[in-house]
Protein backbone atom coordinates (compact mmCIF):
# COMPACT_ATOMS: atom_id res chain seq x y z
CA UNK A 1 0.00 0.00 0.00
CA UNK A 2 2.66 2.45 1.08
CA UNK A 3 4.83 1.68 -1.92
CA UNK A 4 1.95 2.10 -4.30
CA UNK A 5 1.21 5.47 -2.73
CA UNK A 6 4.86 6.46 -3.00
CA UNK A 7 4.94 5.40 -6.59
CA UNK A 8 1.95 7.45 -7.58
CA UNK A 9 3.40 10.42 -5.70
CA UNK A 10 6.64 9.94 -7.58
CA UNK A 11 4.78 9.70 -10.88
CA UNK A 12 2.88 12.89 -10.22
CA UNK A 13 6.10 14.63 -9.28
CA UNK A 14 7.67 13.43 -12.55
CA UNK A 15 4.67 14.63 -14.52
CA UNK A 16 4.92 18.07 -13.00
CA UNK A 17 8.64 18.26 -13.49
CA UNK A 18 8.78 16.81 -16.97
CA UNK A 19 5.48 17.10 -18.79
CA UNK A 20 4.84 15.13 -21.93
CA UNK A 21 6.04 16.58 -25.22
CA UNK A 22 6.88 15.12 -28.58
CA UNK A 23 10.16 16.95 -28.69
CA UNK A 24 12.33 17.47 -25.67
CA UNK A 25 15.83 18.49 -24.88
CA UNK A 26 17.70 16.95 -21.97
CA UNK A 27 18.43 19.86 -19.68
CA UNK A 28 19.66 20.10 -16.11
CA UNK A 29 16.13 19.78 -14.80
CA UNK A 30 15.55 16.56 -16.62
CA UNK A 31 18.72 14.64 -15.77
CA UNK A 32 19.27 12.62 -12.64
CA UNK A 33 22.64 11.27 -11.63
CA UNK A 34 23.78 8.75 -9.03
CA UNK A 35 26.83 6.56 -8.59
CA UNK A 36 26.66 3.00 -9.88
CA UNK A 37 27.57 0.08 -7.64
CA UNK A 38 30.85 0.09 -9.40
CA UNK A 39 31.32 3.78 -8.59
CA UNK A 40 30.75 2.99 -4.93
CA UNK A 41 33.34 0.23 -5.17
CA UNK A 42 35.75 2.67 -6.77
CA UNK A 43 35.28 5.11 -3.88
CA UNK A 44 35.68 2.32 -1.34
CA UNK A 45 39.02 1.51 -2.92
CA UNK A 46 39.96 5.19 -2.84
CA UNK A 47 38.95 5.30 0.84
CA UNK A 48 40.98 2.26 1.72
CA UNK A 49 43.96 3.74 -0.08
CA UNK A 50 43.47 6.86 2.04
CA UNK A 51 43.57 4.75 5.19
CA UNK A 52 46.61 2.93 3.88
CA UNK A 53 48.31 6.23 3.16
CA UNK A 54 47.58 7.42 6.69
CA UNK A 55 48.80 4.25 8.28
CA UNK A 56 51.96 3.93 6.27
CA UNK A 57 52.38 7.71 6.50
CA UNK A 58 52.75 7.60 2.75
CA UNK A 59 51.73 10.85 1.15
CA UNK A 60 51.87 9.53 -2.39
CA UNK A 61 49.37 6.77 -1.71
CA UNK A 62 47.18 9.39 -0.11
CA UNK A 63 47.62 11.61 -3.16
CA UNK A 64 46.54 8.74 -5.40
CA UNK A 65 43.42 8.26 -3.33
CA UNK A 66 42.72 11.98 -3.68
CA UNK A 67 43.29 11.72 -7.41
CA UNK A 68 40.75 8.91 -7.59
CA UNK A 69 38.29 11.00 -5.59
CA UNK A 70 38.82 13.97 -7.88
CA UNK A 71 38.47 11.76 -10.94
CA UNK A 72 35.15 10.59 -9.57
CA UNK A 73 33.98 14.17 -9.17
CA UNK A 74 35.15 15.12 -12.64
CA UNK A 75 33.37 12.02 -13.94
CA UNK A 76 30.12 13.41 -12.51
CA UNK A 77 30.45 16.35 -14.85
CA UNK A 78 31.42 14.27 -17.85
CA UNK A 79 28.66 11.74 -17.32
CA UNK A 80 26.17 14.53 -16.93
CA UNK A 81 27.44 16.22 -20.03
CA UNK A 82 27.11 13.05 -22.02
CA UNK A 83 23.34 13.28 -21.69
CA UNK A 84 22.90 17.00 -21.45
CA UNK A 85 21.83 18.85 -24.57
CA UNK A 86 20.53 15.80 -26.40
CA UNK A 87 17.33 16.49 -28.29
CA UNK A 88 14.77 13.70 -28.57
CA UNK A 89 11.90 13.70 -30.97
CA UNK A 90 9.05 11.27 -31.12
CA UNK A 91 9.02 9.52 -34.45
CA UNK A 92 6.89 6.91 -36.19
CA UNK A 93 5.36 3.82 -34.76
CA UNK A 94 5.26 0.23 -35.83
CA UNK A 95 2.10 -1.42 -34.49
CA UNK A 96 1.99 -5.01 -33.43
CA UNK A 97 -0.58 -7.51 -32.22
CA UNK A 98 -1.87 -7.05 -28.71
CA UNK A 99 0.13 -9.25 -26.37
CA UNK A 100 3.29 -8.93 -28.43
CA UNK A 101 5.63 -6.00 -28.86
CA UNK A 102 5.18 -2.96 -31.02
CA UNK A 103 7.93 -0.48 -31.74
CA UNK A 104 8.25 3.26 -31.46
CA UNK A 105 10.79 5.40 -33.18
CA UNK A 106 12.79 8.06 -31.40
CA UNK A 107 14.96 10.49 -33.27
CA UNK A 108 18.02 11.66 -31.35
CA UNK A 109 19.75 14.82 -32.37
CA UNK A 110 23.14 15.94 -31.07
CA UNK A 111 24.35 19.54 -31.03
CA UNK A 112 27.19 20.69 -33.22
CA UNK A 113 29.93 20.33 -30.68
CA UNK A 114 28.80 17.48 -28.59
CA UNK A 115 28.72 13.74 -28.88
CA UNK A 116 26.43 11.53 -26.84
CA UNK A 117 28.05 8.18 -26.40
CA UNK A 118 26.79 4.87 -25.15
CA UNK A 119 23.17 5.80 -24.52
CA UNK A 120 20.74 3.08 -23.49
CA UNK A 121 17.09 3.71 -24.22
CA UNK A 122 14.15 1.65 -23.14
CA UNK A 123 10.44 1.90 -22.68
CA UNK A 124 9.21 0.25 -19.50
CA UNK A 125 8.93 -3.50 -19.82
CA UNK A 126 11.18 -3.77 -22.86
CA UNK A 127 14.84 -4.47 -23.53
CA UNK A 128 17.11 -1.43 -23.88
CA UNK A 129 18.74 -0.35 -27.12
CA UNK A 130 22.22 1.10 -27.26
CA UNK A 131 23.03 4.07 -29.46
CA UNK A 132 25.71 6.74 -29.83
CA UNK A 133 25.19 10.05 -31.55
CA UNK A 134 28.09 12.04 -33.01
CA UNK A 135 28.18 15.84 -33.00
CA UNK A 136 25.63 17.38 -35.34
CA UNK A 137 24.25 13.97 -36.17
CA UNK A 138 20.72 12.69 -36.13
CA UNK A 139 20.01 9.06 -35.32
CA UNK A 140 16.84 7.13 -35.01
CA UNK A 141 16.22 4.16 -32.77
CA UNK A 142 13.30 1.84 -32.69
CA UNK A 143 12.33 0.83 -29.18
CA UNK A 144 10.07 -2.06 -28.56
CA UNK A 145 7.00 -1.50 -26.44
CA UNK A 146 4.91 -4.25 -24.92
CA UNK A 147 1.35 -3.99 -26.19
CA UNK A 148 -0.95 -4.95 -23.39
CA UNK A 149 -4.21 -4.22 -25.13
CA UNK A 150 -5.82 -3.62 -28.50
CA UNK A 151 -5.88 0.01 -29.55
CA UNK A 152 -3.53 2.74 -28.45
CA UNK A 153 -1.11 1.74 -25.73
CA UNK A 154 0.47 4.75 -24.08
CA UNK A 155 4.16 4.02 -23.99
CA UNK A 156 4.89 5.69 -20.67
CA UNK A 157 8.21 7.28 -19.92
CA UNK A 158 11.23 6.34 -21.94
CA UNK A 159 14.30 5.78 -19.83
CA UNK A 160 17.45 7.16 -21.34
CA UNK A 161 20.54 6.26 -19.47
CA UNK A 162 24.27 6.55 -19.85
CA UNK A 163 27.30 5.54 -17.81
CA UNK A 164 29.83 6.84 -20.23
CA UNK A 165 32.72 7.65 -19.84
CA UNK A 166 33.88 5.78 -16.75
CA UNK A 167 30.92 3.69 -15.64
CA UNK A 168 31.24 5.15 -12.17
CA UNK A 169 28.03 7.10 -12.42
CA UNK A 170 24.69 6.59 -14.03
CA UNK A 171 22.96 9.62 -15.50
CA UNK A 172 19.42 9.10 -16.64
CA UNK A 173 16.22 10.79 -17.54
CA UNK A 174 12.64 9.63 -17.79
CA UNK A 175 10.86 11.42 -20.57
CA UNK A 176 7.25 11.23 -21.57
CA UNK A 177 7.56 11.55 -25.32
CA UNK A 178 3.79 11.53 -25.69
CA UNK A 179 4.04 8.39 -27.75
CA UNK A 180 1.53 5.64 -28.08
CA UNK A 181 1.74 2.45 -30.00
CA UNK A 182 -1.17 0.84 -31.77
CA UNK A 183 -2.00 -2.69 -30.82
CA UNK A 184 -3.81 -4.71 -33.46
CA UNK A 185 -6.36 -7.19 -32.21
CA UNK A 186 -4.89 -10.52 -31.28
CA UNK A 187 -5.91 -12.83 -34.16
CA UNK A 188 -8.49 -15.43 -33.20
CA UNK A 189 -8.73 -18.37 -35.51
CA UNK A 190 -12.16 -19.30 -36.79
CA UNK A 191 -13.55 -21.56 -39.43
CA UNK A 192 -16.14 -19.31 -40.84
CA UNK A 193 -15.06 -16.44 -42.91
CA UNK A 194 -17.07 -13.36 -42.03
CA UNK A 195 -17.24 -12.27 -45.61
CA UNK A 196 -19.73 -11.57 -48.25
CA UNK A 197 -18.98 -11.57 -51.93
CA UNK A 198 -18.64 -8.28 -53.69
CA UNK A 199 -21.64 -7.72 -55.81
CA UNK A 200 -20.15 -4.58 -57.10
CA UNK A 201 -17.56 -5.94 -59.34
CA UNK A 202 -16.88 -2.90 -61.30
CA UNK A 203 -15.10 0.06 -59.89
CA UNK A 204 -12.43 2.51 -60.25
CA UNK A 205 -9.96 0.29 -58.50
CA UNK A 206 -10.39 -2.72 -60.59
CA UNK A 207 -8.54 -1.41 -63.56
CA UNK A 208 -5.77 -0.03 -61.55
CA UNK A 209 -5.17 -3.08 -59.48
CA UNK A 210 -5.02 -5.27 -62.50
CA UNK A 211 -2.50 -3.15 -64.23
CA UNK A 212 0.98 -4.39 -64.29
CA UNK A 213 4.00 -3.67 -66.37
CA UNK A 214 2.91 -6.26 -68.96
CA UNK A 215 0.10 -4.04 -70.07
CA UNK A 216 2.20 -1.16 -71.02
CA UNK A 217 1.58 -0.27 -74.53
CA UNK A 218 -1.20 -2.76 -75.21
CA UNK A 219 -4.26 -0.68 -75.68
CA UNK A 220 -6.51 -3.60 -76.49
CA UNK A 221 -7.38 -4.02 -72.81
CA UNK A 222 -10.60 -2.34 -71.95
CA UNK A 223 -11.29 -1.17 -68.53
CA UNK A 224 -14.23 -2.87 -66.86
CA UNK A 225 -13.78 -6.32 -68.33
CA UNK A 226 -15.70 -8.52 -65.92
CA UNK A 227 -13.94 -11.36 -64.22
CA UNK A 228 -15.91 -14.52 -63.77
CA UNK A 229 -18.39 -14.63 -61.01
CA UNK A 230 -17.51 -16.50 -57.84
CA UNK A 231 -19.84 -18.77 -55.98
CA UNK A 232 -19.76 -16.67 -52.84
CA UNK A 233 -22.75 -18.32 -51.22
CA UNK A 234 -21.07 -21.70 -51.09
CA UNK A 235 -18.05 -20.14 -49.65
CA UNK A 236 -19.90 -18.16 -47.01
CA UNK A 237 -21.57 -21.38 -45.92
CA UNK A 238 -18.20 -22.51 -44.64
CA UNK A 239 -17.11 -25.04 -47.16
CA UNK A 240 -13.61 -23.86 -46.94
CA UNK A 241 -11.28 -21.61 -48.90
CA UNK A 242 -9.57 -24.12 -51.07
CA UNK A 243 -11.72 -23.40 -53.99
CA UNK A 244 -9.98 -22.88 -57.26
CA UNK A 245 -11.68 -19.51 -57.45
CA UNK A 246 -9.01 -18.12 -55.19
CA UNK A 247 -6.18 -19.22 -57.37
CA UNK A 248 -6.34 -16.20 -59.56
CA UNK A 249 -5.99 -13.01 -57.59
CA UNK A 250 -7.36 -10.94 -60.37
CA UNK A 251 -10.67 -12.65 -60.26
CA UNK A 252 -12.51 -11.18 -57.31
CA UNK A 253 -12.55 -9.98 -53.79
CA UNK A 254 -14.18 -10.55 -50.46
CA UNK A 255 -15.64 -8.09 -48.08
CA UNK A 256 -14.72 -8.94 -44.54
CA UNK A 257 -17.69 -7.61 -42.68
CA UNK A 258 -18.21 -6.85 -39.00
CA UNK A 259 -21.94 -7.26 -39.30
CA UNK A 260 -21.61 -10.82 -40.57
CA UNK A 261 -20.17 -12.00 -37.29
CA UNK A 262 -22.76 -13.37 -34.91
CA UNK A 263 -23.34 -11.47 -31.72
CA UNK A 264 -20.19 -11.62 -29.69
CA UNK A 265 -18.11 -9.07 -27.83
CA UNK A 266 -16.16 -6.46 -29.70
CA UNK A 267 -12.70 -7.80 -29.08
CA UNK A 268 -13.54 -11.28 -30.25
CA UNK A 269 -15.08 -9.91 -33.41
CA UNK A 270 -12.02 -7.81 -34.09
CA UNK A 271 -9.77 -10.76 -33.36
CA UNK A 272 -11.60 -12.94 -35.87
CA UNK A 273 -11.44 -10.25 -38.51
CA UNK A 274 -7.73 -9.82 -37.88
CA UNK A 275 -7.16 -13.54 -38.27
CA UNK A 276 -9.01 -13.51 -41.55
CA UNK A 277 -7.04 -10.55 -42.81
CA UNK A 278 -3.91 -12.60 -42.25
CA UNK A 279 -5.45 -15.71 -43.72
CA UNK A 280 -6.61 -13.99 -46.89
CA UNK A 281 -3.31 -12.24 -47.23
CA UNK A 282 -1.57 -15.57 -47.03
CA UNK A 283 -3.87 -17.00 -49.72
CA UNK A 284 -3.33 -14.02 -51.94
CA UNK A 285 -7.04 -13.34 -51.92
CA UNK A 286 -8.06 -9.78 -52.40
CA UNK A 287 -10.27 -8.39 -49.66
CA UNK A 288 -11.97 -5.29 -48.35
CA UNK A 289 -13.03 -4.55 -44.81
CA UNK A 290 -16.22 -3.09 -43.44
CA UNK A 291 -16.57 -1.89 -39.90
CA UNK A 292 -19.45 0.12 -38.52
CA UNK A 293 -18.93 3.57 -39.91
CA UNK A 294 -15.83 2.84 -41.99
CA UNK A 295 -14.82 0.85 -44.98
CA UNK A 296 -11.58 -0.17 -46.64
CA UNK A 297 -11.75 -0.79 -50.38
CA UNK A 298 -10.55 -4.21 -51.53
CA UNK A 299 -6.91 -4.72 -52.36
CA UNK A 300 -4.06 -7.04 -51.55
CA UNK A 301 -0.50 -6.68 -50.30
CA UNK A 302 1.45 -5.34 -47.40
CA UNK A 303 -0.22 -1.93 -47.54
CA UNK A 304 -3.67 -3.39 -47.49
CA UNK A 305 -2.82 -5.70 -44.66
CA UNK A 306 -1.43 -2.81 -42.67
CA UNK A 307 -4.43 -0.60 -43.39
CA UNK A 308 -6.88 -3.32 -42.49
CA UNK A 309 -5.13 -4.20 -39.25
CA UNK A 310 -4.80 -0.50 -38.34
CA UNK A 311 -8.48 -0.07 -38.92
CA UNK A 312 -9.23 -2.98 -36.63
CA UNK A 313 -6.83 -1.71 -34.05
CA UNK A 314 -8.25 1.75 -34.13
CA UNK A 315 -11.83 0.62 -33.89
CA UNK A 316 -13.57 2.55 -31.16
CA UNK A 317 -10.40 4.46 -30.21
CA UNK A 318 -10.17 8.17 -29.93
CA UNK A 319 -7.71 9.24 -32.54
CA UNK A 320 -4.69 10.48 -30.71
CA UNK A 321 -0.98 10.50 -31.24
CA UNK A 322 -1.36 8.23 -34.21
CA UNK A 323 0.93 10.05 -36.52
CA UNK A 324 2.76 7.66 -38.74
Amino acid sequence: MATAGMRSLYRRWLDRRMPAARQQQLTQRRIFILPTGYGVFFMVIAGSLFLGGINYENNLIMALSFLMTSLFMIAILHTFRNLSGLVLRAGRMAPGFAGTDGALELVLHAGDQQAHTGLWLAYPGAAPEEVSVSPGEEKNVWLSVPLRRRGYNRAGRVRIESRYPLGLLRAWSLLDMDQACLGWPRPLASEECPAGGGEQLQGQYAGRQRGSDDFQGLRSYQEGDSPRQVDWKAYAAGRGLHSKHFADPAEGWLWLDWSLLPAMDTETRLGRLAWWVLALEQRQQRYGLRLPGTELPPALGADQRRRALDMLGLYGENIQGGEH
Partner: peptide, 14 residues
Protein backbone atom coordinates in the same frame (compact mmCIF):
# COMPACT_ATOMS: atom_id res chain seq x y z
CA UNK B 1 41.75 15.27 -20.17
CA UNK B 2 39.76 13.96 -17.22
CA UNK B 3 42.84 13.20 -15.13
CA UNK B 4 44.35 16.58 -15.88
CA UNK B 5 41.08 18.18 -14.87
CA UNK B 6 41.17 16.15 -11.66
CA UNK B 7 44.70 17.30 -10.76
CA UNK B 8 43.86 20.71 -9.26
CA UNK B 9 41.21 19.17 -7.06
CA UNK B 10 43.64 16.51 -5.97
CA UNK B 11 46.14 19.18 -4.96
CA UNK B 12 43.47 20.96 -2.95
CA UNK B 13 42.52 17.77 -1.14
CA UNK B 14 46.15 16.95 -0.58
Amino acid sequence: VMLLQALPLMVLLF
